[in-house]
């Protein structure tokens, strides 16, 4: 009589092997999870190191200890108060593109756009306000508050480019109104855009 043995145990030796394989699989199952946890920890550690490294490369790296929004703002206020730059003296100067760009980016002066307002609206130097030669009186009245609060504040005028005279005319008008610190950027809008610098639209 041939006994019907289990499908995986035809020969005693084979059953042993099958059992062994089964046991190995179980172990590997548990082993897999702890290996996966290990991998996770390694990944987390690597990521943390990478993150800290990247942080140091930032302009304003995140401090290691978190500050609430209120604290962060307080620190910003302190930094600003310490950073009071001396006002720039521009009287009568003709500026190069580099100097002009620095003034614009660091907001060291109020930039005045002497071109007709429509051109100003189509695109102007970031932060510039329109004080067009052609509508000077009306524009001046609108800007009176900002301008007249300090007639010694640094101002820079520009127009379309080196061929237009509007920036100089506006500068002279401002000088007659007793503004003491006005410069002209002769390169104008042409130089700014040719250098690929950003435009602003209202």
């Amino acid at each position: 009589m041939i006994s019907q043995s289990n499908s995986y145990a035809i020969i005693p030796g084979e059953r042993f092997v099958a059992g062994e394989i089964f046991a190995m699989n179980e172990e590997t199952g548990r082993g897999k999870i702890s290996r996966d946890f290990l991998a996770l920890s390694m990944l987390a550690l690597t990521a943390l190191c990478l993150g800290l490294l990247l942080n140091q490369m930032r302009n304003h790296p995140l401090p290691l200890v978190y500050q609430s929004k209120a604290e962060g703002l307080q620190r910003a206020v302190e930094r600003i108060s310490q950073n009071k730059a001396a006002p720039v003296s521009l009287a009568g100067k003709n500026l190069t593109l580099e100097t002009f760009r620095e003034i614009v980016e660091q907001r060291k002066a109020l930039i005045l756009d002497a071109r007709p307002e429509i051109f100003h609206r189509l695109g102007h130097v970031p932060g510039a306000v329109s004080l067009s030669r052609e509508d000077f009186e009306n524009r001046y009245i609108k800007l009176r508050g900002i301008l007249e609060k300090d007639k010694n504040q640094p101002l820079v005028v520009y127009c379309a480019g080196s061929d237009c005279e509007e920036s100089e005319l506006v500068q002279q008008a401002l000088a007659k109104l007793n503004f003491t610190n006005v410069a002209v950027f002769r390169g104008g809008w042409a130089a700014w855009t040719q250098a690929g610098l950003p435009k602003e639209t209202p």
Binding site: L48, G51, L52, Y66, Q67
Partner: peptide
């Protein structure tokens, strides 16, 4: 607060 910024820095690269 000691851990918040560490997590903020470490999680994105992770």
């Amino acid at each position: 607060k000691e851990l918040i910024n560490l997590l903020a820095l470490g999680l994105p690269p992770f």
